[in-house]
Simulated scan of single mutants.
Amino acid sequence: MAEEKELLLWGATSPGEILEEKLQEMNVDVNDFAARIGYTPKTVNELLKAKCRVTVEMAYSLEFGTGIPQYCWLNLQKQYDEDLWREKIKKSLKKSVVWRKFFPIGELNPRTWVKDFNNKEDGVSPILKFFGVASPKAWENYYYKNRLKVAFRISLAETEDPYAASVWMRRGEILADEIKMEKQNDKKVRSAIKKAMPQFVELAKNDVAAWEDLRRKKALPKPKVGEDFIDDGMHKLQELGAKLGIKVLYAQNFKSAPIHGMARWYKDIPVIQLHDRFKDRNAFWFTFFHELGHIVLHGKKDIFIKNVYYGNKNQQKDDEANAFAQKYMTQAGLEV
């Protein structure tokens, strides 16, 4: 096989190479050795050429025939298999360089979301590890085709830029995993949210007032390019959400996927993910109340995200979330 030949040139050692050296040392030919260990000459020849693997049974036979412990043969086979697959994966990833270019590389560069993103030798593996998928095909099946649609009734194929949208969504999943929170009964969570709505309204009113005060003083925060941003009002919202069993997350969106908010139940916990650089604080709070409306009013099997086609039924849900947001924005005395 071509891969095995390349590995031999590359430096990987197969069990067959060690066996060949041992047979020369013992001055035993293949036919004689095969008879000694109970295998056919054909099988031994295949082993010498790395065309068959050392099994546990064979390893014990080789130990009796050569004096080399069975675990050595098994370890040799394991290492050789790993080397072989490493080379195969490396070849496959080289063919996937084009796939990497579909992602918003320019905007991802200054961010620290994808570890080792600028690896010059391998620019694909860091993205696969970020998404937790084994291949570009697996990414496509999960985010672009069937898996999300089956689990959450959506497909990013309908977004303006599914690659950028998937990065933003995945960033939210990673942030959500970093927040430790016990699962609660969804009815209790929704009930707690409804009771806490006056607190959300008061927080929104005070936060917008503080924001406008900063605007008048020309002291609005200026997040650095690539940094994760969260100010005092956003932090207070996060804390209030946590008390009620909601994870509120912030992640900068992408120009090609200008998503302002998303609501979903992730691992049975309600999650609201918001863009972290709203210039209009009223828009920030409307988006939050809109996503909160989805959590309160709609099912756990839905993900609500901008620019995804939901069909007429889910459009009605979006309208209901808008009405929910309008109600509480009005109570806070905020413009929509």
Score class of each variant (00 low, 15 high):
residue 215 R to P: 02
residue 5 K to V: 08
residue 151 A to R: 15
residue 215 R to C: 11
residue 94 K to P: 08
residue 110 P to L: 10
residue 290 H to T: 02
residue 97 V to F: 11
residue 37 I to A: 06
residue 298 H to N: 10
residue 270 P to M: 04
residue 238 Q to E: 14
residue 178 E to Q: 14
residue 243 K to D: 14
residue 6 E to D: 09
residue 242 A to Y: 11
residue 244 L to F: 08
residue 329 M to R: 03
residue 271 V to Q: 04
residue 83 D to F: 12
residue 13 T to C: 09
residue 286 F to T: 07
residue 318 D to P: 06
residue 175 L to Y: 09
residue 196 A to T: 01
residue 332 A to I: 04
residue 329 M to W: 05
residue 112 T to L: 13
residue 231 D to E: 15
residue 195 K to P: 01
residue 279 K to I: 10
residue 237 L to V: 07
residue 297 L to T: 04
residue 27 N to S: 15
residue 233 G to E: 05
residue 86 R to Q: 14
residue 226 G to K: 08
residue 44 V to E: 02
residue 84 L to I: 14
residue 215 R to L: 09
residue 284 F to Q: 10
residue 259 I to M: 10
residue 201 V to A: 01
residue 267 K to I: 03
residue 294 H to R: 03
residue 105 I to T: 14
residue 192 A to R: 03
residue 6 E to S: 08
residue 54 V to Q: 06
residue 204 A to W: 06
residue 275 H to A: 09
residue 189 V to E: 00
residue 55 T to Y: 08
residue 292 L to S: 00
residue 61 S to I: 10
residue 298 H to P: 05
residue 291 E to Y: 01
residue 139 W to V: 02
residue 153 R to G: 05
residue 276 D to L: 09
residue 294 H to S: 03
residue 22 K to Y: 10
residue 34 A to T: 04
residue 334 L to M: 07
residue 279 K to T: 11
residue 332 A to P: 07
residue 196 A to Y: 00
residue 46 E to C: 08
residue 22 K to T: 15
residue 325 A to Y: 04
residue 174 I to K: 09
residue 185 N to Q: 05
residue 74 L to R: 14
residue 262 M to D: 00
residue 83 D to N: 13
residue 217 K to F: 02
residue 62 L to W: 13
residue 126 P to Q: 07
